[in-house]
């Protein structure tokens, strides 16, 4: 075992001192050290997108990121997009619910993070742009149509905050 050291990580706007080893992968640190289990680990190979988080304004894969490398960057997970004070869900989360875009739910945090990042950077995407932005997120319940509709509706109704 490699020795763990205390590393300050900025997660959802909060500085957290976490125990991290040099060979720790970010998704594991988020789930086990930060107790943020909303981020899911799917394939662990960068194919499924379940572990998508946002680092410095970019949707990336926490299963292919060394936790050490993310220290000093701004990390946002699914837990970080709801209203911090009231706990009210983000518009994109509400839209997923309203459109039945969730089935088993395992891909949902990743889908929402990719969608959230898209709408933040591009408030009025075309359907093709949404499809492309979500092409790195797999859903095995085949809910893609409802997911696309949820993202499109969220954009039409004022987007994400």
């Amino acid at each position: 075992m490699m020795k763990k050291q205390l590393v300050t990580m900025n997660i959802n706007g909060e500085n957290m001192d976490l125990r991290v080893a040099p060979n720790d992968v970010l998704v594991e640190v988020l789930r086990k050290e930060a107790n943020l289990t909303g981020t899911k680990k799917g394939c662990g190979q960068g194919d499924c997108g379940a572990c998508t988080v946002i680092i410095d304004n970019k949707a990336v894969l926490s299963c292919l990121t060394l936790a050490m490398s993310a220290a000093g960057r701004e990390i946002t997970t699914i837990e970080g997009i709801a209203d911090h004070k009231t706990g009210e869900m983000n518009a994109i989360q509400k839209s997923f619910l309203n459109h039945g875009a969730v089935q088993c739910g395992y891909c949902t945090p990743g889908m929402i993070m990719s969608s959230y990042n898209l709408l933040k950077n591009k408030p009025n995407p075309t359907r093709q742009e949404i499809r492309r932005a979500l092409s790195g997120n797999l859903c095995r319940c085949t809910g893609y149509i409802l997911i696309l509709e949820a993202v499109q509706a969220c954009a039409a109704e004022g987007g994400v905050n």
Binding site: D47, L61, L64, S114, R132, L134, G136, N137
Partner: peptide, 9 residues
Amino acid sequence: IGGPQVREM
């Protein structure tokens, strides 16, 4: 290359 997240990384 890969998917959107892979290309960001």
